[in-house]
């Protein structure tokens, strides 16, 4: 809690930009520019402020968005993968399973089976509430799930 509020406010701007367009590519260089800090300083400060490295934060937003599209639309898994920023369907499916514990199709089937009446809650807050809490790297989560299989692929 020792970070300067003025710096935090500028880091929040980078976080907001990822929130607004999580399907886009967000390099640390680009995000550092949004925050007005050096690239070297940016990733460390972001992690200290928000608890996760910027690229992993972006990943949680993409998964969150994919989940809501699976839940609320009839779009195909392929279409959803590309709309949420993945370049490969394989990476999307694998990362999705690693993070949420189920495949996109499984999640869709399960969510469809449990009708909800949440019309009175603004949609964005619901989405945020369903954001995956990714406190460890996807690669680490994968390692924990499949004991012994090392895979350092983290960013889709």
């Amino acid at each position: 809690m020792s970070q300067d509020p003025e710096l935090l406010r500028r880091l929040l701007r980078a976080k907001d930009r990822m929130d607004a367009a999580s399907h886009e590519e967000w390099s640390n260089e680009k995000l550092a520019r949004v925050s007005g800090v050096s690239e070297a300083h940016f990733a460390r400060s972001f992690k200290e402020a928000f608890g996760v490295p910027p690229h992993r934060y972006l990943l949680t937003r993409r998964i969150e968005r994919a989940k809501s599209l699976l839940r609320d639309t009839e779009l195909s898994t392929t279409e959803i993968a590309f709309r949420t920023g993945w370049k490969s369907l394989g990476t999307f499916g694998r990362t999705f399973r690693d993070v949420t514990g189920e495949s996109p199709t499984e999640l869709r089937a399960r969510e469809r089976a449990s009708p909800q009446s949440l019309e009175s809650v603004p949609a964005c807050f619901l989405h945020a509430a369903h954001r995956p809490d990714l406190t460890i790297a996807v690669s680490e989560k994968r390692r924990q799930a499949l004991d012994g299989r090392a895979d350092d692929e983290e960013v889709p």
Partner: peptide
Amino acid sequence: ALRALVAKG
């Protein structure tokens, strides 16, 4: 702490 939390959204 509160100032930091506000700045972090």
